[in-house]
Each structure stands twice: as C-alpha cells, then as structure tokens.
C-alpha cells in the first residue's frame, strides 16, 4: 500500500467547510494537476496531506496509515513539500539551502555525508542550479529561487512531491523549465501533485487532473476528460477555448460567463 487514500475528508475553517467530504486516491507515478478557482480548497488539501490541518471528519492515510499516526520526521523522509512563495529569512548560500532538504534523513538515520552530498548534487543538477551554489539565496531572481527551493525539496528524495503553485509569477521560460523538472520526476517513478492555475500547463504536463470546486471534487481524470469547455465554464465561470497544437491540448480562457458554483 503506497500513496494517499483520502476518505470523506472534511476540513473546516471556523464554520465553513473548506474541504467537504472529499474522496481521492493519489498513488503511483505521474503528475497530478490540482486545479480549481481561488478558495476551492487546493492548498488546504495539500496541507491536509502533510498533516498540518486536523480533519473535522473523514481521514487521510499515507501508505496505509492515518496521517496523524505518522512520526513527523518519518513522513518527511517520504513526502516533500514546496509551499507557495518560497520564503528565506537569512542570506544562506544556495548549497546550504538545498542541503536543508536532507534534514529529515539526517534526523532519521544520522548523517551519511556521501549519500547526503550525492542527493544534494543530483537535486541541483536536476533543477539546473549548480552554478548558483555559492550565491546567497536572497540574491536570486524569482525563477532561480523557485528552482532552488524545488532542488531543496528534491534533495529529500521524496516518493511524493506536493508543490503549491510553483510556477506562479514566473516567466514562460521558467514555467516550462519547472514543469519539465516535475515531469521528469514523475517519469522516474515519483508521484507529483501540483497546484496550477495555468490550464494549458495542466493539459500539457499532467497525467491526471483533479478539479476542486468549493471544497468538493468537481472532476477527476485525464486532461482531455476534465479540461472541457463545459466543465471549465461551470467551475470557473469563464468561456473557454480548448484546442490542439500538434498532439497537445491547449486551453484559453476567453470571456466571463455567469459562474454556476457546484450544486449547493
């Protein structure tokens, strides 16, 4: 039993259910795109998968065991997280920042210098940040910083990577670069769950798209099945043009249409 099993998950903020009786399985290699309007519960879902938020009802299990029953450090060895914004408080070097990704392993098994250094080097190579190694993490451009933080998450060699809007605010070049890193990770056998607002990126890079709306599952399936004009109009309240370029789907939000929120 690997991966996540989510059953009847309800998470409340005050009286409002941010996630409402959600059932979802996330396992096996692949990129899972998590989409939905602002406030749909995407970040809340990621935080629930990490055990940060206690469920009001239902449960989240990882590898067959309830998330609350996991030892934090043991879970950290298997699940990596890339939060929004990628803050850094001190001007540490990029190499030191990426090395922090090894922390869970060092705490679980003690320091293995060779293994730690190899994982850090591999993560920096995978995200193309080796040349930044000695730079201060505060002196980076937005794109560089995201790739450094991604390298930090990869250095932990997680089975599952949860990335919250990793391409927000990046130029197209960096967006594609980051998505390609995630794609390669999935091709190497990991589960990647990524929150995206760019529907074309979701169409191109994801094996599966999970669409949330008002805390509920609005759709779940391969990109062609989820990213349809009808479903997107219903959930996002926009008219959408879906087309094909070569073999790839592209999705263009075009105009506003009156939103019809999920059945209430």
């Amino acid at each position: 039993m690997t991966g996540y099993a989510i059953r009847g998950l309800t998470v409340k903020r005050g009286d409002r259910a941010v996630l409402d009786r959600l059932d979802l399985d996330l396992s096996g290699p692949g990129v899972v795109g998590l989409i939905g309007p602002n406030g749909a519960g995407k970040t809340t879902l990621l935080k629930s998968l990490l055990g940060f938020l206690p469920p009001a009802a239902g449960e989240v299990a990882f590898a067959g065991r309830r998330i609350a029953a996991w030892n934090r450090a043991a879970l950290a060895c298997r699940v990596g997280y890339l939060p929004q914004g990628a803050p850094c408080a001190w001007p540490m070097t990029v190499a030191d920042v990426v090395d922090l990704g090894r922390t869970p392993h060092r705490r679980a098994r003690g320091a293995h210098r060779a293994a730690d250094a190899a994982a850090v080097a591999a993560a920096m190579a995978a995200t193309g940040v080796e040349h930044l190694s000695a730079r201060s993490a505060l002196d980076l451009s937005g794109g560089e910083r995201v790739r450094v933080m991604l390298a930090r998450a990869l250095a932990g060699e997680p089975e599952v990577l949860l990335a919250d809007e990793p391409v927000a605010g990046l130029d197209p070049h960096y967006q594609l670069q980051v998505m390609e890193v995630l794609r390669r990770l999935a091709d190497a056998g990991r589960t990647v769950v990524v929150v995206l607002h760019d529907l074309t990126l979701a169409a191109r890079f994801c094996d599966r798209v999970v669409m949330l709306n008002a805390g509920r599952l609005a759709a779940d399936g391969p990109p062609e099945a989820v990213l349809t004009p009808g479903l997107l109009a219903e959930v996002f309240g926009v008219t959408i043009h879906v087309g094909r370029h070569a073999d790839d789907l592209y999705v263009l939000p075009w105009g506003l249409s009156p939103p019809r929120r999920a059945a209430e």
């Binding site: 950290a76 060895c77 939060p83 803050p87 408080a89 922390t103």
Partner: peptide, 15 residues
Amino acid sequence: DALTLGEETAQSLGF
C-alpha cells in the same frame, strides 16, 4: 535551520 525557509517548510521537514 529549517525555520529559515518558513514555518510550513520547517513543518514539512518534520519539525
């Protein structure tokens, strides 16, 4: 050390 990258990252690193 982990807290340098924010509270959420520190938590996700097992603290």
